[in-house]
Design a protein around this nucleic acid. Structure first.
Length: 761
DNA sequence: CGTACCGACCTTTTT
DNA sequence: GGTCGGTACG
């Protein structure tokens, strides 16, 4: 059998074509679950095994670190099976990690020192705020978050302050104030020897523009280039790809415009839609057979996405069995919703056949995970949460990392600012303000400003000695850093800063948790050393860490339900999937007044992504009432539910015992008109509708709370001040029993039962 | 200077 | 309902 035959057996014709077409530009439009990764890895292995390029002459760009790791692993596996020896590294990267790699080599040409520091978006924001103070710009008039995103957008378009000034060739205008901030920000970044996420791409682009010889080196090196998730590339990424592919024109891009969900991050869907204009000779391959999901799921998702206008006409189909109907479930509120999910999983698990790892719960916003966690914990179902508050964003972790950063780069102002008084060493706000003032005026780093002020005898003796001690500590750490291995240095930092000692003295559960996080960081460092061996330097570690995400570190071995946002779910699959919170205003979420058709279409693509993750069974839930920012909201079911043809769905409700509020009466729930399409949504809700206990099924039984209290959900009560209402929920028991009451004006108030003079009526 | 409390803002989504 | 930044007080 020939090599090609071996690599293409078990593939369908378009997959085969993808593996066989190695030279020239190739556009692969890969529908969800169409065996894309399989085709790609085989294609890469084919190129290497047939000797067209060695491993290090191929550049493969993916969207997440996790995808990169996975792809690399699979390519190596295939090559090993073919007995092809691999001696050189394979360049499977994210755009950002690729750029780090390039900059690590050449950043000195851009007037930076090696090693450079990477600022994450938190550092970026902090620096923007500081620049605003220096420039006397009011945060109220120009919100710093706003400026941050404008600057970031400019960078993603490849625009520097110089480009934006002078009108130049650019049509994009930036208002003068923002431009001032942008310029000064850049200046400060350079002084701090730091680059931000966007810079990684922009600086690499600039490097290539300024030094054609270096560009040429990479152009020649990479005989083949492949970009995954091409629909999510932004302009600067597009420019980089075009540049790099210029010499050989062996560019293969893969994507699915129906899964483009990152436009808010600058992703430009036209990059994929216009690929054939950029490369008229491109071979276009469509992978349209879905191998992942049951046909009900595929049909439902296909019908849903057909409502979008910005897409290439294509048909996703499957030969898989029909499978179960999509379960659409209505619940009364988010607690019932979470309970429904938890109980459903529990009962399915207990009947055997499946295990916890088979289940995933998706939601639109991270905030939705909280209630879910509570419910899963109460019935003792293990879960793992991906995203949300990241490990590396925990305060104590950031603190220690700031020590590591500062000891490597004294100019790292954001790190210094964070830890100059952590743990507390008596250096207060006024002192720091004076240091910042000096730094701003003299355009020097905070570290240097501190030294200068000490030498100028600016401070009193007490402050001076505290500052002196801090500077000595950092200088000492800088020396230790060079002498010890990373893991040893880490212990030294913990010891010399007394960080852990001070936490231990606190003796609170919070402090305990922090200590254990720092232990976890210790483990992570040990792991890193094990993996990288001699290359486990501090700067490498900081680099990798800044670019790491939660998804990369998720522990998939433990048996647990996985919870994440739909955005993170892209590229993953699970036998059983729950999509919760399918309500208007939440999903699709509306972003203020400026909502556009484009926004809704992107939300719809997000729904499409979420749904197509499910292999066997999919639940989509919505609630009549939900608490958002502590406010009760009643939103109609998501339009996306309505857009799924009824023949693919099965509806059930855990809120039937509750008389449907008026706006529901015309909907699928109460009438012969069996669709979501005409909700007469009204806020004019009769609170009585919610006052009745529900008794329709297992999941929403009246629960009796507290042994002697006798308060139960739905019980009507009178409050001396607020009048008559109905008990909406309860928490705690005995003296700490708290009761939430829904009053006639549709507000909810929470009382401690012991003190509130509630009277049953 | 450190702490404790208050109110604004938050909720998209990530490298 | 939670977090973070600002303010007031000890």
């Amino acid at each position: 059998m020939s090599l090609t035959e071996i690599l293409t057996r078990d593939l369908n014709p378009p997959q085969k074509k993808a593996v066989e077409t190695m030279d020239g530009p190739v556009l692969i439009l890969a529908g969800a679950g169409s065996g894309k990764t399989r085709a790609l890895t085989h294609r890469m292995a084919h190129i290497i095994a047939s000797g067209l390029a060695s491993t290090d002459e191929i550049l493969c760009v993916t969207f997440t670190n996790k995808a990169a790791k996975e792809m690399e692993h699979r390519i190596f596996k295939i090559l090993a099976d073919l007995n092809v020896p691999v001696t050189r590294e394979l360049w499977v990267n994210t755009f950002h990690s690729f750029c780090v790699r390039v900059l690590r080599q050449h950043i000195d040409l851009l007037d930076y020192k090696k090693p450079f520091t990477i600022y994450d978006s938190g550092d970026q924001l902090a620096l923007i705020k500081r620049v605003m103070v220096a420039l006397n710009i009011n945060d109220k008039m120009f919100p710093s978050k706003n400026l941050q995103s404008r600057i970031s957008n400019a960078k993603m378009l490849g625009l520097t302050p110089d480009n934006l000034r002078g009108g130049g060739s650019s049509q994009i205008k930036m208002d003068p104030k923002t431009l001032d901030v942008y310029s000064r920000y850049e200046e400060e970044m350079k002084r701090a020897n730091a680059v931000d996420f966007d810079d990684l791409l922009l600086k690499t682009y600039e490097l290539f523009r300024m030094y054609p010889a270096i560009l040429e080196q990479y152009q020649n090196k990479f005989r083949y280039i492949m970009v995954d998730e091409y629909q999510d590339t932004n302009h600067i990424q597009y420019l980089l790809v075009q540049m790099l592919a210029k010499a050989h024109r062996n560019l293969c891009v893969v994507g699915d415009e129906d899964q483009s969900i990152y436009s808010w991050r600058g992703a430009d869907i036209s990059n994929i839609l216009d690929f054939e204009k950029d490369f008229p000779e491109a071979v276009v391959i469509k992978l349209e057979e879905n191998y992942r999901s049951s046909s009900n799921i595929v049909s439902a998702a296909t019908k849903l996405i057909a409502n979008n206008t910005q897409r290439k006409e294509k048909t996703l189909f499957t030969n898989n069995p029909e499978g179960d109907l999509i379960q659409i479930r209505e619940e009364r509120n988010e607690y019932d919703e979470a309970r429904f999910v938890a109980k459903t999983i529990q009962s399915m698990i207990s009947s055997g056949e499946s295990n916890l790892n088979d289940y995933a719960i998706f939601y639109r916003t991270n905030a939705q995970s909280r209630v879910l966690e509570e419910q899963l914990r109460t019935i003792a179902l293990p879960y793992r949460l991906i995203g949300g508050i990241r490990f590396y964003e925990r305060a104590e972790v950031k603190d220690i990392l700031s020590y590591l950063r500062l000891s490597q780069n004294f100019s790292d102002d954001m790190a210094l600012k964070r830890i100059i008084n952590v743990p507390a060493r008596g250096i207060g706000k006024t002192t720091l303000e004076q240091i910042e003032q000096k730094a701003n005026d003299s355009r020097i780093s905070l570290f240097e400003a501190t030294q200068l002020l000490i030498n100028e005898r600016h401070f009193n003796a007490g402050t001076t000695s505290k500052l002196r001690r801090f500077l000595d500590l950092i200088e000492d750490l800088a020396i230790q850093q060079k002498q010890f291995r990373l893991s040893e240095f880490y212990s030294i930092v913990l010891e010399k800063t007394e960080y852990v000692n001070i936490l231990k003295k606190e003796d609170t559960p919070e402090a305990e948790a922090r200590i254990s996080n720092l232990e976890e960081l210790d483990n992570a460092i040990a792991q890193f050393e094990k993996e990288r061996g001699d290359e486990a330097s501090l700067s490498n570690y900081l680099e990798e860490l800044t670019l790491a995400s939660d998804l990369d570190n998720a522990d998939n071995n433990a048996s647990a339900i996985t919870m994440m946002t739909m955005h993170i779910s892209k590229g993953l699959e699970y036998p059983y999937v729950f999509i919760i919170g399918c309500e208007e205003n939440l999903f699709p979420s509306v972003r203020g007044e400026d909502e556009s058709v484009d926004d809704i279409e992107e939300e719809r693509r997000l729904a499409y992504v979420g749904m197509t993750r499910a292999r066997q069974k999919l639940w989509m839930t919505h609630t009549k009432m939900r608490r958002v920012w502590g406010q009760e909201q009643m939103n109609p079911p998501s339009r996306f539910l309505r857009e799924i043809p009824k023949e693919f769905t099965s509806f059930s409700s855990g809120a039937l015992g509750v008389q449907a509020p008026r706006f529901m009466s015309n909907s699928r729930f109460g009438s012969q008109n069996n669709s979501y399409s005409d909700n007469n949504y009204s806020n004019n809700t009769n609170y009585d509708d919610y006052a009745q206990p529900s008794y329709d099924d297992d999941f929403s039984q009246t629960h009796q709370v507290g042994k002697s209290s006798g308060y139960s959900k739905g019980q009507r009560v009178r409050h001396p001040t607020f009048g008559v209402g109905a008990i909406f929920s309860t928490e705690g028991a005995g003296d700490t029993l708290k009761i939430s009451v829904l009053f006639q004006d549709n507000t909810i108030k929470k009382f401690v039962a012991k003190y509130a003079r509630l009277e049953k009526v």
